Amino acid sequence: MFAGFYEEIHEEFREVVREFVTREVAPRYKEWDQNHMIDRSMWLAAAENGLLGLAVGEENGGMGLSDYRFRMILDEELARADALGVALALHLHDDWVLPAVLQFATAEQQQAWLPRFMDGSFVSSVAFTEPGAGSDLRAVRTKAVKDDDGGWILNGQKTFIGNGVSGDGALVLARTDGSEPRERGSETSFSLFLVEKQGNPGYQPGRQLEKMGLKASDTAELFFSEVKIPAENLIGEEGRGLEYAKAILPQGRLGVATSAVAVTAEVLRQTISYVGEREAFGHSVREFQHTRFQLAELQVRLEAAERYVAAAVERFNAGELDLVAASKVKLWASEQAKSSVDACLQLHGGYGYILEYPVAQAYLAVRLLTIFGGTSEILKETIAGDLPG
């Protein structure tokens, strides 16, 4: 990011993150990517270094680092190590599930769960998306009904769930008003639950889905068959699940935007270095006017995206980033990342198409960013609905 955005305390934090990434992630990332699974050792090491649950307050044993600039440093250092699958796994845990617990769980629930979010013993997933529903959360069919003990019985299926195999539990959006699954639910048809895998034989990950990129971060279907949920695992109030899901979207979408900028910046840095070393027709590729002009344009686009994301982070830190603003910054940053990384791959020529080159891995990774957290089309609908007139 640009000069002046980070303060000294952030750069001190960066030293901790960089040392962690160098020691625990970079040497093993290729193995995780090949195995399509991040070892639990990564989560435990991240916990030991205080890198999980940054926003958890001191009253629950955390550091209370709610300034999102700290979270961005994780993205930047993981991008620098070409470990984008780890970045995605951490975002799911810290930007999608944790905010729901911090904002809507009771004090007793927070005391029980937050230490596990921070010590690496509870890796979480966000389980909203379903086959046939996609981004339309009112079409969710997964159903929870009350049992005789005051708890709930959960049945249904989710798909495209990050950390779905490796995770220990999921934040699940389920229909709780007794309406028929074939109907689109109302605003009060759904509730949120934190559902644990351990002790629930009906909680079964399905097949691991084969993705284009980000393979180190496992993605799977989840199946729930007569899964018992204790009453205390209901997040907030019954019937407000859709409201809560919408409330955590700004942070989730901001996380996608910051990831997009971090990846773009690193790929552009690598590309500038590459074209300076690569020769064609007796000259470095960087000497050609077309290359210089393209790099100049990519640099301007990156700086514009950085400034936009920085402004969104400032609004988030002030508690003022709403859904429309978060949708705008995610739309811009993710689409720019997709086109910029594509241009950088082109500048690598044939080598850009070889998977051992980071630019090829980044190309596959950024393709998710215009889909994950709300497709660009959904974001445009949200933005259009707020237009004046």
Rank of each mutant, 00 (worst) to 15 (best):
A310D: 12
E306H: 06
A304Y: 13
H283E: 14
R292M: 15
V275N: 02
F316T: 00
R301V: 03
E320H: 11
A280E: 15
R292W: 06
V324M: 07
L321R: 00
A326L: 02
E303F: 12
L302Q: 04
Y308M: 14
V300F: 06
R307A: 14
L321C: 00
E320P: 01
E303P: 02
A296H: 14
V285T: 12
F281P: 00
Y274K: 04
Y308A: 09
V309N: 02
V309M: 02
R307L: 13
R315M: 07
E277C: 04
A304I: 10
S273T: 13
V324N: 03
G276M: 10
A280G: 02
L302K: 06
V313I: 15
V285N: 07
V313F: 07
H290W: 06
E314I: 07
A280F: 14
E297H: 06
L323H: 08
T291K: 01
R286C: 10
F281N: 10
R292I: 09
L298A: 12
S273E: 15
I272C: 12
A304E: 15
I272K: 13
H283K: 14
Q294F: 04
E303M: 09
Q299V: 11
Q289F: 10
V285W: 15
V285Q: 11
R307Y: 07
E277M: 13
Q299H: 11
V309C: 04
A304D: 15
A304M: 11
L295N: 09
E314P: 01
A310R: 10
F293E: 14
A312L: 07
L295I: 14
H290D: 03
F288I: 01
Q299D: 13
E297L: 10
Q294R: 15
